[in-house]
Amino acid sequence: MSIILDKINYCYSPDTAYQIQALKDINLTIDDGEFIGIIGHTGSGKSTLIQHLNGLLKATSGHIYVNGQDIYDEDYDMRDLRNHVGMVFQYPDHQLFETTNFEDVCFGPKNQGLDRQTVELRAYEALRSVKFPEDLYYQPPFDLSGGQKRRVAIAGVLAMKPQVLILDEPTAGLDPAGRDEILDLIANMHKELGITVILVSHSMEDVAKYVDRIIVMNQGSVMYDGVPKEVFHHYQELEEVGLAAPQVTYLMHELRSQGLEVDLDATTVEEAAESIVKALK
């Protein structure tokens, strides 16, 4: 499912004293099966941007084409769009409300108008793909740990079989192991289900480790768009806008300035160690 954003502008409270231009002339193409990370400081327009992708916000001007169709066309079916673009909001685990975890996951597909059997099949499938322990399926969601709750919440969106999965900081508030588990899970789903994944994150280390393409937002515009190595080359510019590069990037630059011929492109711990060993030989 390809998504094209063509000169998207968005204004909060237009024509009032509080008018804020949250998105400025955004042009983006998101291809089928991509794994994209969106980074940007708080207030840079990340959340506003992703809310356009499933039609929760309507651009003040510009067009969005999904599979070639303009979603702002009068006869375009928004419901259909939302069935295909799944969104996992920040702290989705705060939104669990059903009596059991299984029922909670059923809620989405049920609202899509599917029959009970299909709904249940989808819920099983989704809970399995997030590796949720079977003995907890029929337990209330409120007693789960943070990581487990988040799995249920993600399964609830997966059960609607989206072709594009958008996650807004899916690991906020999780412990390091929980963080790794959820991100591994997402990477796995991307590989196995072949869905497009868009990950909004504040962790440069996570983004460097998992995604294929990074979009950097700053003051409502796209500042950089490219593969992680390319983007993190601009680490000084990123810092100026309240972001950072992965810590490994700084390490490599410091070593280089001290005369060690290391690879400045390394962004993960493994790449860094390898390059340092090579340079020391």
């Binding site: 390091p176 192991a177 992965p246 810590q247 390490l251 711990v269 160690a273 390898e274 340092i276 060993v277």
Partner: peptide
């Protein structure tokens, strides 16, 4: 289920590599 700072991780990885 915890972690260590990235610098410590790189150091550990380097030690593993001798």
């Amino acid at each position: 289920r915890l972690d260590v700072p990235q610098a410590t991780l790189v150091a550990e990885e380097l030690r593993k590599k001798g």
